[in-house]
Simulated scan of single mutants.
Amino acid sequence: MKKLHGTGVALVTPFKKDGKIDFEGLEKIVKRVAKNKVDYLVLLGTTAETATLKKEEKKNIIECVKNINQTKLPLILGIGGNNTKDIIEKIKNINLDDFSAILSVSPYYNRPSQEGIYQHFKSIVNNTDARIIIYNVPKRTGSNILPDTVIRLANDFENIIGIKEASGNILQSYKIIEKKPKSFGLISGDDFITLPVILGGGDGVISVIAQGFPKEISEMVSLAKKDKVQEAFSIFYKIINMIELIYEEGNPTGIKTLLKILKICNSYVRLPLIKGTFFLEKKIENKLNTYKLV
C-alpha cells in the first residue's frame, strides 16, 4: 500500500440536543470535505469523542460514513486504548475490508516505558494483518513515543506504515523523518505545525480545522508538497487565528462551535466535555466574518 499523503480529516461525531448521534450532520461534513479535495477520512479518533461512544453507535457511524463515502476516499479507523488484549480482540471482531489502515493511539493512563510501548504495538501487529498507523499524542496519553522507539517499530514491522505525530515538538518529527524507512509515513497530528512538518519531509496532516476549512487546508498542504512555500504560508497566516480559537476551549469543543456557526451541525458534546461558551462563539463568529469561505 502507498503511504497516506496530503490532508486527512479527523471527523467529529455530531450530536443532537438529546445526546443522540446527528447522522444528517455527519453526512454534511463528509460530503463537504470530500467536495473540497481532502485526501482521506479518519473515523473514531480522539476528535470523534470515541471514548464516550457505545459499541452500537460506533458501528452505526462506520456504516453511515461508508455509505456516504462510497469508497471515494480512503478511510482510516481509530482503534486504540490502554488494554492491549482488548484492542487485539476489537480488531479481530471488526470487518476492516473498507479501511486502508487502523490509527492506534499509544496507551494512555498506564504510562508505559518505551519498551512497554514497543511490546504493545508488537502484540497488535502480530495478531492482525491490518496496517497500523501509530498515534503519538503525549498531552492526552501521559507518555511520549520517542523517535528511537518509532524507528525501531518502523524497521521491525512492515505493517506499521506510519505515525500521526502530535507531540507538538517539531524536532521530534524531524528526527523520525531523518531515520525512518522510505515507506514509512510521518503525518502531522497538529494543525499548527503542519507546514514545517511537510517542508521537512513529512507526508501531510490529519487535521481538525479541515472540517471548517477543507478547501484552504487541502490547498495549503498541496502547495507545501510542491515546495510552493510562500503560497502555502499565505493561506496558513490567514487562518492561524482561527486555529488558535478552535483549541481555546479544547477539542472537539472548538471545531464543533465553528461547525455550528457554519450551519453544518450543532455544537453539542458529551460529558465530561462541555459545549463552547458564548464568548468563544462570538470570537469565532467575528473572526469568520473576516474570511471568505467555500
Results as ranks from 00 to 15, higher is better:
Leu4Asp: 09
Tyr40Arg: 07
Ala154Arg: 08
Ser173Asp: 15
Gln211Lys: 09
Ile117His: 11
Glu281Val: 09
Asp86Tyr: 13
Ser106Leu: 10
Ala101Gly: 04
Ile134Glu: 05
Pro147Thr: 05
Ser143Gly: 11
Leu262Gly: 04
Phe233Val: 09
Phe23Trp: 03
Glu24Lys: 15
His120Pro: 11
Ile76His: 03
Glu285Gly: 01
Ile176Ser: 01
Ile163Ser: 00
Lys260Asn: 06
Glu63Tyr: 03
Arg131Asn: 15
Gln172Phe: 04
Leu199Gln: 12
Ser218Ala: 09
Ile76Arg: 05
Ile170Asp: 07
Val33Tyr: 01
Asp22Ala: 01
Leu103Cys: 08
Glu57Asp: 08
Leu41Pro: 00
Asp39Gly: 01
Lys58Asp: 00
Ile240Cys: 10
Phe99His: 01
Ile61Ala: 07
Leu271Cys: 07
Phe121Gly: 06
Gly250Glu: 10
Lys282Glu: 14
Leu195Asp: 08
Ala232Ser: 12
Phe192Gly: 02
Asn144Asp: 12
Ile198Arg: 10
Val229Phe: 10
Gly6Tyr: 04
Ser100Cys: 03
Pro272Arg: 15
Val105Ile: 15
Gly19Thr: 10
Lys238Trp: 00
Lys225Cys: 04
Glu285Trp: 13
Glu285His: 11
Met242Val: 02
Lys164Tyr: 11
Ile187Trp: 06
Phe279Thr: 12
Ile255Thr: 09
Asp203Pro: 03
Gly204Asn: 11
Lys17Asn: 11
Leu41Ile: 08
Glu244Arg: 13
Val229Ile: 15
Asn266His: 14
Leu73Trp: 07
Glu219His: 11
Val208Thr: 11
Asp22Cys: 01
Asn251Arg: 09
Leu223Ala: 03
Glu285Asn: 10
Gly200Phe: 09
Asp39Lys: 11
Asn266Glu: 13
Ile61Asn: 02
Lys58Ile: 01
Leu195Ser: 06
Lys85Pro: 02
Val208Pro: 14
Phe157Gly: 05
Tyr135Glu: 06
Asn155Gly: 07
Leu195Glu: 08
Lys256Gln: 07
Asn251Met: 14
Gly202Val: 13
Ala232Gln: 07
Met220His: 04
Ile217Pro: 00
Val42Lys: 06
Ala10Leu: 07
Glu244Pro: 04
Lys35Ser: 09
Phe15Pro: 06
Ser167His: 03
Gly276Lys: 09
Lys90Phe: 07
Leu186Pro: 05
Asp97Met: 13
Val30Glu: 03
Leu4Phe: 15
Leu11Arg: 09
Lys35Ile: 02
Val65Arg: 11
Tyr237Gly: 10
Gln70Glu: 15
Asn95Ser: 14
Gly254Thr: 02
Tyr109Gln: 01
Ala34Ser: 14
Pro196Gln: 13
Leu77Gln: 00
Leu146Glu: 14
Asn127Thr: 00
